[in-house]
């Protein structure tokens, strides 16, 4: 974590703002996913618990559509070697991670706002719990999807394999986050949700450590 990784992040941000590839893909995917759910629900009355689960379905598939860009774009442009020359693996990973965290937060905030506007049943009773789980869940999502994106960029099949590889890694996080969202909808106190919160936080810490340790191997390949 130094000024180099920050400038790498700025570089990614600038090139993203120029092409707006990931942002456009993500924005369209959010709309597509939410409208698919709305069409399939139709006039049915759905329970608040179900909306909490569907919320994470939208988040997962949206993340899978846009987050692999971080490393795939470098491979496509052929700039990987240049990056390897100017920066250490840790720096590269930090820069990409910051970019993905910001992207995930932007994406999920849009999803949350749209979702609560469109689904009347999606009422959060314990907002603080929802916000905490949302923040830690987003960080975990960003970390895991960044390291899997690095693997995918080096492997041949770029688009199709990404959700396949990410799902088992993200599954514990998604299970815990769905549970926390249900708690927040039911208005359960912080005290009784602390076990799930601890799982999400330790998932973040362990995945972050493992990613930094393993990224060297991927990057030098």
């Amino acid at each position: 974590m130094n000024s180099k990784s920050y400038s790498l992040f700025l570089k990614d941000l600038k090139s993203e703002l120029r092409t707006r590839y990931a942002i456009n893909a993500l924005a369209m995917f959010i709309i597509v996913a939410i409208s698919v759910i709305m069409f399939s629900v139709g006039q049915e009355k759905i329970s608040p618990g179900l909306t909490g689960g569907l919320f994470w379905v939208v988040i997962f598939f949206t993340a899978m559509s846009g987050l692999s860009r971080a490393f795939v774009s470098e491979e496509e442009r052929g700039t990987t070697l240049a990056l390897q020359l100017v920066a250490s693996p840790t720096t590269v990973f930090s820069g990409k991670l910051i970019f993905n965290i910001i992207l995930v937060f932007a994406m999920n905030t849009v999803i949350a706002v749209l979702y609560s506007a469109l689904f009347n049943e999606f009422i959060i009773r314990n907002f603080l719990l929802f916000l905490t789980s949302f923040v830690f869940g987003n960080i975990g999502l960003a970390i895991s999807s960044t390291i899997i994106a690095a693997i995918i960029a080096k492997a041949g099949a770029k688009g199709t394999l990404y959700p396949v590889l990410s799902f088992p890694i993200l599954l514990p996080l998604i299970l815990a986050s769905v549970q926390l969202t249900l708690f927040a909808i039911d208005g359960i106190s912080f005290e009784s949700a602390k076990f799930e919160l601890a799982i999400v936080v330790s998932y973040d810490v362990i995945m972050l450590t493992a990613s930094y340790m393993l990224f060297d191997f991927i990057w030098k390949e």
Binding site: S144, I147, I148, I151, K154, A155, L165, P168, I169, L171, P172, L173, A176, I199, S202, Y203, I206, M207, A210, S211, L214, F217, I218, E221
Partner: peptide, 18 residues
């Protein structure tokens, strides 16, 4: 070999959460 080894390491650390 390298990429699959890295992936199995990452998958291995998620198992305790389950």
């Amino acid at each position: 070999a390298t990429l699959s080894a890295v992936y199995s390491m990452i998958a291995f650390v998620t198992v305790p959460f389950f």
